[in-house]
Nucleic acid binder design. Sequence first.
DNA 1: AACAATGCTTCTATTTTCGTAGCACAACAA
DNA 2: TTGTTGTGCTACGAAAATAGAAGCATTGTT
Lengths: 109, 109
Amino acid sequence: MVLPNKPVRGSTSGVPIMALFDLLGQRWNLRLMWELRQGPKTFRGLQSACGGVSPSVMNGRLKMLSEAKLIVQSDQGYTLSPLGAELMDELDPLRGWAKKWASEIGTKA
Amino acid sequence: MVLPNKPVRGSTSGVPIMALFDLLGQRWNLRLMWELRQGPKTFRGLQSACGGVSPSVMNGRLKMLSEAKLIVQSDQGYTLSPLGAELMDELDPLRGWAKKWASEIGTKA
DNA sequence: AACAATGCTTCTATTTTCGTAGCACAACAA
DNA sequence: TTGTTGTGCTACGAAAATAGAAGCATTGTT
């Protein structure tokens, strides 16, 4: 259970940002939330949006993100909670940074 | 090798932000960079800052982050590259969000 | 009744991560 | 010269996380 004020991997302090890093540092969590930005998605919809994550892992993540109150389930499927949506807003500028990163690295596909 | 414009887990598009998520979604990467915000750290210094990550994993991460040009090695130890420092600046507002998150969740240690 | 879609669970296999130990090199001290 | 200390790592077995495929129960539709 990864929540703020709880000790997490590599930090017993429970400092909120560390809990966040521990949560986001688990594969798919960030991506899952990102895919929910534009609105609700079903379990299978999310799965395919993420390129076929295995359902067992995804289910675990969905539970974890629900406990952390970052997503909620509605009759439309899974959605960001208001809190989760705010987090995604904070992350939005990363799109710009990532483009710059790509161009400065100059990687060819 | 996780770089922008390269296909990554769950996305063959090579869209920069996906590469970023794949990179940051690997354990310790985000935390390692975060610990470098305030200046250079030695290998072992970084290791203990992160609560004793195993050196083999950490070494792998350091290589990965170097390839991605987010960190560099100086005689002072490992440091953020200008690009990496910019990323951390973008992430800085998360501190505020995380506090709010903690208070709204109301978790007791 | 048959079909399709949804939200999962279960299983095994592979990959990642952890944790400890230790090596090779450099700087310094005795 | 011989320690000792600090550094950046590598090696290796064990544990945990992730992947991938299959399938089940429920709901709704035809």
